[in-house]
Design a binder for these strands. Structure first.
Lengths: 95, 95
DNA sequence: ACATCACATAGACAGTCATCTATATGAGGT
DNA sequence: ACCTCATATAGATGACTGTCTATGTGATGT
């Protein structure tokens, strides 16, 4: 995973609504209607946020009838986590 | 570390120049002039990026004579990494 | 066929962002 | 005192962002 991809994901997570959405998806797949309940934003705004999350690669969508079910993309998430974990603060030992 | 703090850090990392700066600081403290060499941006623009990184809490600055030395803030970095690592993709995994 | 539900798209708008040029600040050196 | 170097600040500008209202789309039910 290169810096451009990571920056895109960070940008997606740089909005606290979206960050909370990701945390909610940590529990497992959820439909848009379920996510909607938790936020004081309109349905189109949520849809916009979900699009950004999907485009970053961090979130997958599964359409089933009228519903859109969103879930975290494990592969992308893990690659992102590894990238972030690879940053070190230089000092050999902490504390 | 709460969602607002994390979102602020993500926002700071959501620019690829800043993400690369953080990667460079992973090596250890560097002065602005050293960072400057690596980017095709003007000095004021770099200064602007450094301010955003400092305000996010992820970067510290140490002034010494004419120079500004930047380094990663270990405490913030680790807290951020833990937050990111705590997101799971739902499918059961160890730990 | 029609109405309804779940969601996406379009367009608008105010606010924020990354970048630049120009200028200020402050530390050293001569 | 003056000049230079390293960096910060100010102000401008065009692009992008988050949010809204209004409307479109496609699936489901009567």
């Amino acid at each position: 995973m290169n810096t451009i991809d990571v920056a895109l994901i960070c940008k997606a997570l740089g909005d606290s609504n979206r960050l909370q959405i990701v945390q909610m998806l940590s529990d497992g797949e959820k439909c848009a209607c379920k996510l909607q309940e938790q936020f004081a934003i309109t349905q189109p705004t949520l849809s916009h946020h979900m699009r950004i999350l999907c485009e970053s690669g961090l979130v997958n969508v599964r359409k089933e009838g009228k519903w859109s079910h969103y879930s975290l993309n494990c592969e992308t998430l893990v690659a992102f986590q590894q990238f972030i974990a690879s940053v070190s603060c230089g000092k050999k030992k902490g504390r």
